[in-house]
Lab assay of single mutants.
Amino acid sequence: DETGKFLVLSLYDYQEKSPREVTMKKGDILTLLNSTNKDWWKVEVNGRQGFVPAAYVKFL
């Protein structure tokens, strides 16, 4: 199980638009929880879990 094993870097600021999403700032290091959807990845940032656009992050 690779859940929570990968870190990704936020390339852009992102403001959550729904309760299922999370806000991140450019340069944030996020824990990747799920990347099965090619468009939206589930991450943990600042103690919160939610989705961010996959195009806004990259693997470290």
Rank of each mutant, 00 (worst) to 15 (best):
D1T: 14
D1F: 14
E2F: 11
E2L: 14
T3C: 15
T3G: 13
T3D: 12
T3E: 12
K5S: 11
K5G: 11
F6L: 14
F6M: 13
L7G: 03
L7E: 06
V8W: 07
V8T: 03
V8C: 12
V8S: 02
L9V: 15
L9Y: 11
S10N: 02
S10H: 04
L11P: 01
L11A: 05
L11R: 05
Y12K: 13
Y12Q: 14
D13G: 05
D13V: 04
D13Y: 05
Y14P: 03
Y14W: 10
Y14F: 08
Q15H: 12
K17R: 13
K17I: 07
S18T: 12
S18C: 10
S18Q: 07
S18Y: 06
P19Q: 09
P19S: 11
R20T: 12
R20D: 13
E21R: 04
E21T: 09
V22E: 01
V22R: 01
T23H: 04
M24E: 00
M24F: 07
M24P: 00
M24R: 00
M24Y: 02
K25Y: 09
K25P: 01
K25M: 09
K26T: 06
K26H: 06
G27P: 01
G27F: 04
G27K: 02
G27H: 04
D28H: 06
D28Q: 13
I29D: 00
I29H: 05
I29A: 03
I29V: 12
I29E: 03
L30G: 08
L30Q: 01
L30M: 15
T31A: 09
L32I: 07
L32D: 00
L33S: 02
N34L: 08
N34F: 06
N34H: 07
S35N: 13
S35K: 11
T36D: 15
T36P: 03
N37C: 10
N37W: 07
K38G: 09
K38V: 10
D39K: 13
W40L: 03
W40V: 02
W41I: 08
W41S: 02
W41E: 00
E44Q: 09
V45H: 13
V45D: 02
G47L: 04
R48T: 07
R48Y: 06
Q49F: 08
Q49I: 15
G50T: 01
G50P: 00
G50I: 03
G50R: 02
G50A: 02
V52I: 10
P53D: 02
A54G: 03
A54S: 14
A54I: 04
A55S: 14
A55N: 12
A55M: 12
Y56S: 10
V57T: 03
K58N: 07
K58W: 09
F59V: 15
F59Y: 10
L60Y: 12
L60N: 05
L60A: 07
L60C: 12
L60F: 12
